[in-house]
Amino acid sequence: MKADVKPKPVIAGQGVDAGEVLLAVQNVSLSFGGVRAIRNVSFDIRKGEIRAIIGPNGAGKTSMLNVINGFYHPQEGVITYKGRQRSAMRPHIAASQGIARTFQNVALFKGMSTLDNIMTGRTLKMRRGLLAHALHFGPAKREEIRHRAAVEHIIDFLEIAHIRKAPVGKLPYGLQKRVELGRALAMEPELLLLDEPMAGMNLEEKQDMSRFILTVRDAFNTTIALIEHDMGVVMDLSDRVVVLDYGQKIADGTPAEVQGNQAVIDAYLGVAH
């Protein structure tokens, strides 16, 4: 399938069927002054797949995620999400449309407990206002309890029940990454963007994280786009891989296709001049 095929429009508010295009990036370019971080990149993410974005350092992978969830506004190009086109939007609107993400260097709320961090992910689903919360009575309390139950499911799933009340600033790195995944999952996102979920982890932690990612896709029916440097992980987990180098797309396909691609090998290993 060619990347620039327009996705079938769906009625706003309705879901996208499995296998159809959930998010399409078309001819996006982003530059900071003279630095062209992303040059004319197009690819799509289909509902229910694990889509890897790889490339050497500085290839524009994280910038791409920032464009997708509205943190950067591309100078050119169109992003189509769930059949609706948009160019620039505020990050919290992207969040309300079901795009969640984790960060390369953990961006947890350090002063809060694991539980509160994950509860924060439910913010968009909570409706009660200031006065109801001031009294913490009736509807506001019921709402808190309902969301607490949902959050406890995520805590169980990620096996972090023992650090539920611990302040996240003091947790080891691997657990922080897990809490961050939990916080993103609490949003019940349709599209989950993971920026190097396994950076700095040892083998067992990587295995755990891989297991969680696969389960999230299967059990929560979440579409996942992930950036990762561990090629073993990428090849095992992902359905399709897009490769960026110096802001340009150099390959797009199944892991096997990408592995055999000469341009990718050159980008990673260098070319003799």
Partner: peptide
């Protein structure tokens, strides 16, 4: 409550808070 968590999220990491909605 929810509002307090929003305040603390803004305090601790405002960019991440905005991306949480």
């Amino acid at each position: 409550g929810n509002l307090g968590r929003q305040w603390m999220a803004i305090r601790d990491m405002d960019i991440a808070a905005e991306l949480m909605g």
